[in-house]
């Protein structure tokens, strides 16, 4: 088969992705068989091999359709090389502030060692937070849109700094013309009505951590005393969500996400997604744990079961959508027509060159998961970036420069996977974490299927309405 296409089956449909154009086609079984032979120029060979299997007239008709797609640039599109729009040096546009390297939960899969990242429990001072705002403005060049995430640990354990830094960022916006998008990732334990109102008034997008069903969440996300947290958290999240009803938060991109982690203990994670939806939340994500702990982390042996579960989730997702009760699932939210530009697909999350994490003491790291990892300190807010080789190393670590990614069908959708995971498993950001790649590819197939079906069903409804 031609290496510039990927064909897969989902829920009985056969889908074709043209890798270098991003075109998606739903094809019949005969076209799939043709494409196992067809290279774009060998019609005679196709007819010779398949005429016994299919009527010749049908084969010729299908070949005509394939040639039309080639002429439209939607089949066998030419290879993509690094475009001139992907500049050699990145500009920092996004910071993750570790405002509290301390936490009131003890999640069993925490990559931050219970919140302190192995650096001792501490919180960021207001002065350090303000310096981070200035650093981002200075480092972002002509870019107008900037992003800042308040992270931890648990950021609400240091609400004073959050408020002070936000106030300062809004003041600097007026002085510089920059626009800050602010996000907070919180476990919700300290979400009081007063804090919710303040977060709403300051246009905070919220990422609320919950692992789905009560028994799943409480087994993985206990408090410091080892007690379950579900009842307390869900009560707070519901109040938070209710406070935003009737506002135009989603319209303005100020989303309220519920985000969970699944582990080897809940491979039936579809139930967790549906549980959160049943509780009234409609912007959801659950993601695979990345851990070397054999009790919760995944190996290749777990992949068939994980694939099966994504099939179940896809089915449930479509069922609810068709019944008019659809929800938003982060990994299925793929824009097939107007997705990001190629330069963005190469830079991905931007860790290490467009996106930095700021530790509570002002040290800079490539991202929140690298905080405290030996060999990955970039510099500090006071010194600036002193390890200038690291940003260049991360900038060059894109799919077209990685051997395993260069020929992978998913290369323009995954951005080469997570650097922190590659480092965790291989000690080398150029060596992708294989289990993560496999899960990502399955999710992408499900997402392409979901978006293709929703698009086709919409077309059918519009055609029927016109008739």
């Amino acid at each position: 088969m031609n290496e510039s296409i990927h064909i897969f089956e989902q829920e009985g449909e056969v889908l074709l992705l043209d890798i270098n154009s991003g075109a998606v086609h739903v094809i019949d079984a005969m076209v799939r068989d043709i494409l196992s032979v067809f290279t774009g120029e060998n019609d005679g060979e196709v007819l010779e091999k398949l005429t016994g299997q299919y009527p010749e007239a049908e084969l010729r008709e299908a070949l005509g359709e394939l040639h039309a797609l080639m002429e439209a640039g939607e089949l066998f599109a030419p290879d993509i090389n690094v475009p001139p729009t992907f500049r050699e040096q990145g500009l920092v546009k996004s910071l993750c502030l570790m405002v509290a390297q301390d936490c009131n939960l003890r999640c069993k899969y925490c990559f931050g060692d219970g919140g302190d990242y192995g650096m001792g429990r501490a919180v960021m001072s207001e002065e350090t937070g303000r310096k981070a705002v200035d650093f981002l403005i200075k480092s972002s060049g002509a870019r107008r849109h900037l992003e800042m995430d308040f992270f931890g640990g648990e950021p609400l354990m240091n609400f004073g700094t959050v408020k002070s830094v936000t106030e300062y960022a809004r003041q600097r916006e007026k002085e510089t013309g920059k626009k800050f998008k602010l996000t907070m990732t919180t476990n919700g334990m300290l979400l009081t009505d007063e804090k919710i109102k303040w977060l709403n008034d300051n246009d905070f997008a919220l990422v609320l951590s919950l692992d789905g069903r009560k028994e799943v969440n409480d087994a993985m996300r206990p408090d410091v005393g080892g007690h379950g947290t579900y009842d307390r958290i869900v009560k707070n999240f519901k109040r938070c969500l209710a406070s935003r009803e009737g506002g135009d938060y989603d319209y303005r991109g100020v989303y309220t996400f519920l985000r969970g982690t699944y582990t080897k203990k809940n491979l039936d994670f579809t139930e967790d997604v549906l549980s959160m939806n049943d509780e009234g939340f409609s912007i959801l994500s659950v993601e695979p744990v990345v851990s070397k702990n054999p009790e919760i982390g995944f190996t290749e042996a777990d992949l068939p079961r994980i694939y099966e579960e994504y099939d179940r989730l896809t089915h449930a997702y479509m069922e609810r959508h068709r019944a008019g009760k659809g929800f938003f699932f982060f990994h299925f939210n793929m824009d097939l027509s107007n997705g990001p530009c190629v330069a963005k697909r190469l830079s991905g999350c931007g860790a290490g060159h467009e996106y930095f994490a700021v530790a509570e003491n002002g040290d800079l790291y490539p991202c929140h998961q690298f905080v405290g990892r030996e060999g990955y300190r970039l510099g500090s807010l006071d010194e600036g970036v002193t390890n200038t080789e690291l940003p260049a190393h991360f900038r060059a670590c894109h799919v077209l420069n990685k051997e395993k990614c260069r020929s992978c069908w998913a290369r323009f959708f995954c951005s080469g996977g997570c650097h922190a995971n590659a480092d965790l498993f291989h000690g080398d950001i150029y060596e992708p974490y294989e289990v993560g790649c496999a899960i990502q590819k399955k999710r992408l197939e499900c997402a392409i299927y979901v978006q293709a079906m929703l698009a086709l069903e919409k077309q059918e409804r519009e055609t029927a309405a016109e008739a």
Binding site: L16, T85, P340
Partner: peptide
């Protein structure tokens, strides 16, 4: 088309020349 249903009109190739502004949070 009888055998193939195309579901999108992607702009990825176009962005080889026009992308890279870094303002994403044009296409």
């Amino acid at each position: 088309m009888k055998h193939i249903k195309t579901v999108n009109k992607p702009t990825m190739q176009k962005t080889l020349k026009t992308g890279g502004c870094g303002e994403c949070q044009k296409n």
